[in-house]
C-alpha cells in the first residue's frame, strides 16, 4: 500500500498532534481524536480476544477497548512503566485506549513539515501511517486512525 501524500492531504495533516513514544520510536496521534491521557493500569482481559486487544478499562464510566500498538506496529513488547499511558482516542464512534510507553506533548505540525513515508518501510507498519514529520531533529510517524480501526476490525 503506497502512501502518496497529496497537497490536500498535507494540508489536512497540519494541526495539533499528540507526540508519544512507542518502544524507541516516536509516533503522533491526531490531536482532535484524543480525549484524555490516562495513567496505565492493567486492563481486564476478555477471554478469546486477539493479542492486539488485550482487554478493557473503565474510564469514568466509559468502556475503552485497549489497543496494543506494539503488536499492531510490529514493535518490541515493553514492560509497562511509570511513564506508560493510555491515550483515550474517540474515532468513528469507537472508544479506544492506545498503550503508549510515554506521552510527550501536544505538538503543532505545519503542512510543510509533512513528508512522505520512506518506501523501505515495512508494509504492515506502513498501512497504519499517514506520513512522517521531523520534530526537533527526530522523525515522528503520524498514525492513521481510520487505518487503525480498519486493521483492528479485520485482523490482529
Amino acid at each position: 500500500m503506497s502512501v502518496a501524500v497529496s497537497e490536500s492531504n498535507t494540508h489536512q495533516l497540519a494541526g495539533t498532534w499528540l507526540l508519544m513514544r512507542l518502544s524507541t520510536e516516536l509516533y503522533a496521534l491526531p490531536g482532535p481524536a484524543v480525549r484524555e491521557l490516562i495513567r496505565y493500569r492493567a486492563p481486564v482481559p476478555v477471554p478469546g480476544a486477539p493479542p492486539s486487544l488485550p482487554g478493557l478499562i473503565n474510564q469514568r464510566g466509559a468502556i475503552l477497548t485497549v489497543v496494543n500498538m506494539h503488536v499492531l506496529l510490529g514493535l518490541e513488547q515493553t514492560v509497562p512503566s511509570r511513564t506508560s499511558r493510555y491515550v483515550y482516542v474517540h474515532h468513528e464512534e469507537t472508544d479506544l485506549a492506545l498503550i503508549a510507553d510515554s506521552v510527550i506533548d501536544l505538538i503543532d505540525i505545519a503542512a510543510d513539515q509533512v513528508q512522505a513515508l520512506p518506501t523501505s518501510l515495512d508494509p504492515v507498519r506502513a498501512q497504519l501511517l499517514e506520513a512522517v514529520v521531523h520534530h526537533e531533529d527526530q522523525i515522528v510517524a503520524l498514525l492513521d486512525l481510520d487505518a487503525l480501526l480498519r486493521v483492528l476490525r479485520e485482523a490482529l
Binding site: V46, P47, G48, A49, P50, L53, L56, I63, L64, T65, T94, D95, L96, L149, L152, R153
Partner: peptide, 10 residues
C-alpha cells in the same frame, strides 16, 4: 461489549 471487540471474539 464494545462492538469492535465483540466482533473479534470467537
Amino acid at each position: 461489549l464494545p462492538p469492535l471487540l465483540y466482533h473479534r471474539l470467537p
